[in-house]
Design a protein around this nucleic acid. Structure first.
Lengths: 353, 353
DNA sequence: GACGCTCGTCGAAGCGCTTCGACCGACGAG
DNA sequence: CTCGTCGGTCGAAGCGCTTCGACGAGCGTC
């Protein structure tokens, strides 16, 4: 019975078992499952019953080999330090959950395998498409992506994005929204505490775009703004804040775009003699849970990690079906007002000159 | 040329291409790659050269089908809220990186697909083995794991762990180490600020084991200890701390096992009139980067997420090779002394009565 | 000098699935 | 009544790889 190579299966239930049990051909079972050909209601029911009864699950490798579709997508994550961990996590969760809805699984790949990793994964047909996070303005993987003809969706925008599919929060407008909110409250001097310096140097899009949004809006609204990077340690935050307030004592509002810094900022300000929001208003660009758990609850522009994840997967699935998709998808920011921002006290405004 | 089904490959380079180019049989190429049979140095070199030249990467599906090994492992992550996000992240990174060293990839699976997800993945031969995180004392997936005969390694310990392979930090000793350190500094009344209540209720092992370690060691060393769960918001932390200090004003040291609470605790204590470490010592059980970035740098027992990840993968790989592995692997805690703990001030000790 | 080795290589048989073309009744149109 | 059509099913080929048995050549042994 047993031919020599390709040893007999262990416990595995195969499509042949199902076919035999249901009294049909294997191809019929396949068509029942894929719906690619019409099957009579009767046959379909019998097959489905057999499948359930035998506990049949198609062998992924065989399916991938025959159909040239692995039903797996790769999620390429930074996983380097200094990144905004909770956002990444939320994002990953959303991606996995959404992918499952499309009957796909998710392969986790770290960026540090770099272009070679992408190439390997593409060439071995391990995955049908990739989701790239933490895209930099000048990203080494982008040219490769174009060359590979591997369906992909980027989270974030590289400098040259034509021909690619990118999704992201509109950080430019997010920055602008913060400024607008503060300006509306009467603030005329604000500071942007951004990502760590390394992130800017790396040319990471969201940091740059937020900054430009802030600067631009400030100009338009006649607000003076000073922008500076911000490291993540409590000690670093204190140092940065102290220096900032020494140099610009009349800054009455802070925009913070660094989750890890938000806590320390809120903790440090009072020790520097500034109550929030009485003396200084704070707006954050950070995930909602963060904003809701902080000292005074934070007025914030949430980073909709989940929504981005869902959209990214949906776009990728469309591409896998060879559908046309928009090149750029920019999610509109919404600013949620909470307890960390207030109107400039007239007293202060007068004393500030 | 083109037979009807199994359409011609697109760009893919196959093993046949390599064989033709090198002037050998396909099987020889396969043996060069797998090393499962002796190959002359000459042939091996020629084949390797062809592989490199053509940019050949074996097709993952075909390989999996023929060899019954997917070279993929599943990483089952909690991805639910309330979990210690950075630890999970560090862990995932270590797993992916280590798995790659063993020439395996990692499939990301969320716990919320539950047992059905495991079953699906096992039956479809998508992965060769699984890594389970966030194992609970009474975990629904454990019985399934036994039934499935799917090689697995658990991070954490269920109540009944015989026959399984588990890895974790020895949280019992970690708790004890914190108490010993504090007792050595003269502290006689300490409090354990643990995980959120929900985590205890869920029966999560590490929380319970830490607590028992703390309580046991305290008893042995004649230290009085009060243990209480701790939520994650700044407001909640403040409430918890205020209540604690009101009820037990003579507590002179805190053990904190909740990364998200560490920041708020450090920020809140001074506002309650307690300087760290002058009036209150704080020991944390948390990842090192955290401890190093906090207000005063924290004396801590780091959770060696990376090490755990590496070990877990190594164990799983051994199991895949049908090697015998120990059932329990407990990593020994090391306590790093930093700036947040100090000897009880005699003054205080005197005034405390 | 024949025998049995081992070493290095090849050919063929599948792994479990998808998919194409063929086929066979039933049915509506002419 | 015949022909074309279409819905429903089957059989076979093949996806790209691994692995088993076979085999030829070279070599040491008695």
């Amino acid at each position: 019975m047993t031919g020599s190579p390709g040893r007999p299966s262990p416990g595995q239930v195969t499509i042949a078992d199902v076919a035999r049990h249901a009294g049909v051909a294997a191809s019929t079972v396949s068509y029942v499952l894929s719906g690619k050909r019409a099957i009579s209601e009767l046959t379909r029911a019998r097959v489905l019953a057999s499948i359930r009864l035998l506990g049949y699950h198609p062998n992924a490798g065989a399916r991938a080999l025959a159909s040239r579709r692995a039903n797996v997508i790769a999620l390429v994550l930074p996983l380097r330090s200094g990144m905004q961990v909770p956002v990444v996590m939320q994002f990953a969760t959303a991606v996995v959950t959404t992918a499952r809805r499309y009957d796909h699984d998710v392969l986790l790949v770290t960026s540090d395998e770099g272009p070679a990793g992408l190439r390997r994964i593409a060439a071995s047909a391990l995955v049908d498409g990739v989701l790239l996070m933490d895209v930099e303005l000048d990203d080494a993987r982008v040219p490769l992506l174009r060359e590979l003809a591997l369906p992909s969706v980027l989270i974030g925008f590289p400098a040259e994005a034509t021909g690619l599919t990118c999704v992201d929060l509109d950080f430019h407008r997010a920055g602008a929204a913060c400024v607008a909110h503060l300006a509306g409250l009467g603030h005329r001097r604000v500071a942007l505490l951004g990502a760590p310096a390394a992130v800017y140097e790396r040319g990471t899009g969201f940091a740059h775009r937020t900054r430009s949004g802030v600067v631009e809006a400030a100009e338009l609204q006649g607000v003076q703004v000073v922008t500076l990077p911000c490291e993540e340690g409590a000690a670093d935050v204190r140092r940065t804040l102290t220096a900032l307030l020494a140099e610009h004592p009349d800054v009455s509002a802070l925009i913070v775009q660094n989750e890890a810094a938000v806590g320390p900022v809120l903790a440090t300000l009072p020790t520097l003699g500034r109550q929030v929001p009485r003396d200084v208003s704070v707006v954050a660009i950070c995930p909602d849970p963060f904003a809701e758990q902080s000292g005074p609850m934070l007025t914030s522009v949430p980073v909709p990690a989940e929504e981005i994840g869902r959209q990214a997967v949906a776009l990728l699935m469309s591409k896998l079906r060879d559908e046309q998709v928009p090149e750029a998808t920019l999610l509109q920011p919404r600013l949620t007002v909470r307890d960390s921002t207030a109107a400039t006290p007239a007293v202060h405004a007068a004393g500030g000159h």
